[in-house]
Nucleic acid binder design. Structure first.
Lengths: 333, 333
DNA sequence: CTGAAAGCGCTTACAG
DNA sequence: CTGAAAGCGCTTACAG
């Protein structure tokens, strides 16, 4: 593996000159540059990024923590983040925490050793406790897709989840539903609160018994939670699932229990994953701009890296949007 | 940010001694070690991984290329790979190529600059052309989930896709199906060949007109391909979709066209994604050991890194397995 | 526009 | 068991 010194020897110059033609930071006489380029080509030289990183203090990679990469939501976040990074010549160091706080902590501690120029943490579950580890990080840190207990020590780019829940609730209320259930992941408390607010606005109180926590964020989890909801209140007319995938499981549970959607049961999801458009019936859901969220969070970070200023600490809330499709209608009972 | 020298000064030793207590490679007198540890704690010192990498020549990170992270298949591959890496103290540099050959080439070229100790490339699409770029790589490279035109320059850990297709075909033939269609992604030629072989064994030839290429590996893609298949042969009794997600789209298309599955139409998928168990009817599919595949490929690489020997160049084929569920039965027409 | 020097923060033999 | 030296491969002022 050729080194910069090898190239310099071959071209009859010093390695600083080689560095200059590569970086373009300092003008080099065309004839000299040509010799250098020729030497590079002959040797198949390619700069050692690690050495460059040590000299410059920049690794050109940013770390991204996500709970998982399975499921359309975080997959999209990862790919959107990667797109922005690529535009800026950065690489992606990925870490999926898998709902395992200890695992997350280990990785967090590992990254502190500055092998990364910046860090984006997406999704709160199990990570809130370990954020103080990052207090002394020598690189900018930002958070996105944060729903509960948003820390104020770091900039956050997230969605107005309260509003998202409210949109779902208002839609169902507007249709005239009164006996409803919420199928939620444990940490979706803000969506739930927004949903409650929509009902409270009409003087309706959503009892805790109408909230069913899904054991896991999968179709199977939604399936079971829906069955629990049906058992708790056989006469309910609508369900808000705080995850599309939970809503898909609900559709199955409805089918099996002989409920026709939306005639016997309205279903509202959350996220607007691509799949739900093809579900039968096509799912009414709350869309959230996840790609835009990831993009803005990364850009925020990259801006701080570029200027080597601390990140501006702000809380940015993107707007959710209700997408009405075929899984909701007024109650017919 | 404290440096090793700072710690040494504080503890009243030289930085080599600090290095020794951190690495544990050389015994250090307990009293000295204690002083050093105290200094480390007081300063909040954490070693600079980039400097260490330059000195040791190892970055403790391996690169992983996947076509995408959306969809259960590659999401699983990524997480399985990450698990193994974590066990060995490695980080994951992720690159999704997004079916974009040019993008893949850029990243490949970038990684050649040894910011990575090893590289795993999963999924062939659009990458075969650029593999020669890796010929001179100074780190081990391996391939997995490779279906067509398996290169012999690198070790490959993949699935016996021909056998997978054959299993699907034999199942359908065993049930008595004759008029069948295949819904395939463009690069699934090996699964297709295996499927054909099962029919050829009974003297049945699968005409090209029975093969329908899905525009994209999504439910919508499967939906459209299924409709094309129905139009081409309204009397077909079974479909093999080379992707579960295509099969899911087929289920929708069948529903809408009034075909009851499996009575009017048998459907076989491929991959055994978690979702398909909950589909109605539950999908018969060919399971492939993707997590095991990723694990073995990474371990192969890590072994080569550890011994700094070149990877042993082999082709390893994992066995697919047919999972019979409720979407297939003998033709009733 | 080109060259000599110092430094990025570690590790690795090698003496003592 | 501890310290002095050289080196990993680059970049960055700084003279000429």
């Amino acid at each position: 593996m050729a080194t910069m010194q090898d190239v310099a020897d071959r071209a009859g110059v010093t390695k600083q000159t080689v560095s200059n033609v590569i970086s373009g930071r300092v003008p080099v006489r065309p004839a000299t540059a040509a010799k250098v380029r020729a030497a590079i080509a002959e040797l198949g030289y390619t700069p050692n990024l690690v050495a460059r990183s040590l000299a410059t203090g920049s690794t050109k990679t940013v770390g991204l923590f996500v709970p998982t990469v399975a499921g359309a939501f975080y997959a999209d976040v990862v790919e959107a983040a990667e797109d922005v990074l690529e535009e800026h010549g950065y690489h992606l160091l990925l870490c999926t925490t898998r709902l395992d706080g200890e695992r997350a902590r280990r990785h967090l501690a590992g990254l502190t050793s500055r092998s990364v120029d910046a860090l984006l943490i997406a999704g709160d579950r199990d990570l809130n406790d370990h954020l103080p580890l990052l207090a002394g990080a020598r690189f900018p840190v930002a958070l996105c897709a944060w729903e509960t207990g948003t820390p104020d020590a770091f900039p956050v780019v997230t969605v107005d989840y309260e509003q998202a829940g409210y949109l779902a609730g208002r839609h169902l209320r507007g249709l005239g539903h009164e006996r409803v259930a919420v199928l939620a992941s444990p940490d979706h408390t803000t969506r739930l609160a927004g949903f409650r607010r929509a009902f409270a606005a009409d003087g309706l109180d959503l009892p805790d018994s109408a909230v069913h926590i899904a054991a896991e964020p999968t179709m199977a989890g939604g399936f079971e939670a829906a069955n629990a909801a049906f058992a708790a209140d056989p006469g309910l007319t609508a369900v808000f699932a705080t995850h599309d995938v939970l809503a898909l499981g609900t559709l199955e549970a409805a089918r099996i229990s002989g409920r026709s959607v939306p005639r016997d049961l309205s279903v509202v999801g959350h996220d607007d994953n691509p799949d739900v458009r093809l579900a039968r019936p096509a799912l009414t859901t709350v869309a959230i701009p996840k790609r835009e969220m990831a993009r803005q969070a990364i850009e925020l970070l990259l801006r701080a890296v570029a200027k080597s200023t601390p990140v501006v600490n702000s809380l940015q809330l993107l707007r959710p949007e209700l997408i009405v499709r075929d899984s909701t209608c007024p109650p017919t009972i």
